[in-house]
């Protein structure tokens, strides 16, 4: 028998998964490298594990949504990521869908029994 906490954990995880991409894309309007993006998201109360964010950044980069560049900022090199034109277009479209869904869901959740 699967525990209640496990069920809740899995459902929360699924709920968060889609919005995480949106959050990351929204913050990449300005240039960030992995660690600075984790810090930025954490400061805005969006807790994300480093080992989740770093692969996600690379995936978005591979999909062509980001521009990535290596820059040497002493004492070590950093890989910076930023939204490119295609990424901005995708973000815009996702944002529209999210806001639409939010309104629909909000009104559904407020319905009286």
């Amino acid at each position: 028998m699967v525990e209640k906490t496990d069920i809740l954990k899995n459902l929360k995880h699924e709920l968060r998964k889609g919005t995480l991409v949106l959050a990351v894309l929204s913050q990449l309007k300005t240039k960030h490298y992995g660690y600075s993006l984790v810090e930025t998201l954490n400061k805005k109360d969006l807790k994300i594990d480093q080992n989740t964010l770093y692969p996600l950044l690379r995936r978005l980069d591979t999909q062509g949504l980001l521009t990535s560049t290596w820059e040497v900022v002493e004492p070590r090199p950093r890989k910076y990521y930023e939204l490119n034109a295609f990424g901005k277009e995708i973000l815009h479209s996702l944002q529209y869908d999210f806001e639409n869904n939010y309104q629909v869901l909000n009104s559904m959740l407020k319905e009286e029994y």
Binding site: Y33, R58, R76, P77, K79
Partner: peptide
């Protein structure tokens, strides 16, 4: 990927 990970871990 490894180079990026190494530098991110070192920063942390």
């Amino acid at each position: 990927t490894l180079k990026e990970l190494e530098n991110l871990l070192l920063e942390d």
